[in-house]
Amino acid sequence: MKSRGPKILTYAMLLLAILFFVLPVVWIALTSFKSQAEVFSYPPVFVPEHINLRHYAGVLSGAGGQALRDSFIVAGSNALLSLVAGVPAAYAISRWRIGGQHFAMWILSIRMFPPVVSAIPLFLLFTNLQLLDTYLGLIIAYLTLNVPFVVWFMKSFFDDLPRDLEDAALVDGANRWQAFVRVVVPLAIPAIVSSGLLAFVFAWNEFLLALFLTRSAVKTLPIALSSLVGGHEILWGQIGALAVMAILPVVLLVMLLQRYVVRGLSLGAVEG
C-alpha cells in the first residue's frame, strides 16, 4: 500500500506547476479589464476593481477590429482551401501509394522547414504579381504550410480506414470520385474538421510570413499586436483585450479537440 503523504505531495507539486503555466494567461485576461492606472501601479494590481470593458470597445474600433476581421478572413479561407486541396490529395496518396510509403513523412518535413525559406521567394513573386499586402497573397503563402499538414494528417486517417465500403460502392457502379465523395468523405468528417481547425490555428498564430508579405492593407492579429507594443504610448489594457480575443478561439478549439491537438502537434508520435 502506498502512504498518503507522497500522494498529497504529488498533487501539491502538480498544482504548483499548473499555476505556473496557467497564471500568466489569467493575468492577460485580467489586464484587459484594468484601468490604465491599475496597469502601471506598483505593487501590481492583480484583480481590477471594476470590470472595465472599454478597452475592448477601444481596440475594436481601432486597429483591433481590422486585425480580427483580417485574421478571420485569412485563416478561415486558408483552412478551407487547405482542406479542398489536401483531402483529395491525401486520399489519392493513401490509396494509390504515390511516392511509396514514406511520402507522407517527406511532405511533413516540408512543413518543418524554416518559414523564411519560402518568405523570400514569395516576397519577390508577390511583388511581380501585385499580391503583396493582399488577402489572397497571405492565403496562398499559408497554403505552403497548411496543405502539407492536412495531407499528412488525413493520409494517416485514410490509411486506417477500411476499404470495404468504397469497394462496395465501386461494385454498385459508382466511379472513384463518387465513392470518395459519398462514402469516404462522410466517414472522414470528424478528421476533416479537426485538421481544418488546426490549420486555422496555425494560420491565426503565424507571424513571420505575415511580416514579410503584408504592410497596412492586411494586418493580422499577431502583426497588429506587435505594432501596438512598438508605439510611443502603449495602451496595455487594449493590448490585453486584443490578446484575449486572439486567445479565445484557440482555447475553445483546445477544449473541443484535445485528442487531435496532441496528435497533430506531436506529428503523430502519440495518439493522445
Binding site: I28, T31, V261
Partner: peptide, 18 residues
C-alpha cells in the same frame, strides 16, 4: 491536459507582448 494545452496553442506573439 486541457489546461496545459492552452499555453501551447497561444500565438507566440501574444505570449511575447504579454
Amino acid at each position: 491536459t486541457a489546461l496545459l494545452l492552452i499555453p501551447v496553442m497561444i500565438a507566440p506573439v501574444v505570449v511575447a507582448t504579454q
